[in-house]
Design a protein around this nucleic acid. Structure first.
Length: 293
DNA sequence: TGCCAGGGTCTTT
DNA sequence: AAAGACCATGGC
């Protein structure tokens, strides 16, 4: 199966982002291809995703050939996963004259906003990652997936699906604290799982008003979701191009390196720089994150 | 070893 | 509204 790619797309750039931690539990990368199990419309499918000679995305099914409906859903998933439907020309124009972005965008040309289509997964990843270093965040995230997710083995390798909110909603705070989550974060994760499993919170519901700012304010109403998390989820899950987690220490670090500053810039200074990124703040963040790998 | 890490809530002023 | 206390644990 083939998926035509848009201009300004280089699979390897997004691949490098996806390959930044060997603790990543939801996919593995072998010989430039992503191996991952997905559940599309209730159908399990193992995919191997890479690029063909023409530079288009190519999906191979190592296990079972899916039916047409599943293929259709998979196509939509990949479009969203790599943000293929966005025309990035305005961003590249903007970045070419920006002192922070110019060099970085040149170095990582072709990178896309790699999205986390599943809202529950995006929220959990953000919450687990709050206030701890990225390596520890991956450790906790992996432990969470391996403990409560669904596994499928094929040819000696085990593939994992992210835990369903109904499963997590049935856990206790103690279950999550035992995994070295803080008590607070455990409460947040359980609360989130309950909101999603009882239907109060959904990705569709967040986007129903067609307004990203409404979605962001709805997210902010959830316990455990502050400015950083609301922006992170708006960016990675909802695809809001203007979402920008300004307080992020990683972004601060990236800007410090890009401008060769002596100290990390504060929120105020970052917002001043970001004023020139209107409409493309999320892409600025994506390239800044990428520069740290 | 002490500071830092892809923050957030709750309380106090 | 703004500032401070507290959370709490691994990484380096």
């Amino acid at each position: 199966m083939q998926i035509k790619t848009p201009p300004r797309f280089r699979f390897e750039q997004s691949l490098a982002y996806l390959n930044r931690s060997h603790l990543e539990p939801l996919h593995c990368i072998v010989d430039g291809r992503i191996l991952k199990v997905l559940k599309i419309n209730g159908q399990l499918v193992l995919i191997s995703l890479g690029v063909d000679e023409a530079g288009n995305l190519q999906i191979i099914f190592p296990a079972h050939q899916p039916d047409d409906k599943t293929r259709h859903g998979l196509r939509a998933y990949v479009h969203e996963w790599f943000d293929l439907e966005r025309d990035l020309s305005p961003f590249y124009e903007l970045a070419a004259c920006d002192k922070v972005l110019r060099d970085i965008v040149c170095r990582f040309r072709g990178l896309r906003l790699v999205r986390i289509p599943d809202l529950f997964q995006a929220l959990c990843w953000a919450i687990i990652g709050q206030q701890i270093n990225l390596k520890f965040a991956y450790t906790l995230f992996r432990r969470f997936v391996h403990s409560f997710g669904e596994s499928h083995s094929w040819q000696g390798h085990t593939y994992w699906l992210f835990p369903r909110p109904e499963i997590v909603a049935g856990l206790s705070v103690a279950d999550l604290v035992a995994h070295q989550n803080t008590r607070r974060k455990s409460e947040y994760l359980l609360g989130m799982a309950k909101l999603i499993s009882d239907g109060t919170l959904s990705r569709h519901g967040l986007l129903a008003h067609g307004s990203f700012s409404k979605a962001k304010s709805d997210l902010l109403g959830i316990r455990g979701v502050g400015d950083w998390t609301a922006n992170y989820v708006s960016m990675r899950c909802l695809g809001d191009p203007e979402a920008f987690p300004a307080g992020d220490v990683g972004l601060q670090q990236a800007i410090k390196l890009a401008l060769n500053l002596e100290a990390k810039p504060g929120c105020e200074e970052i917002n001043k720089l970001a004023a020139g990124w209107q409409g493309w703040q999320a892409y600025a963040a994506v390239f800044l994150y990428r520069s740290l790998i």
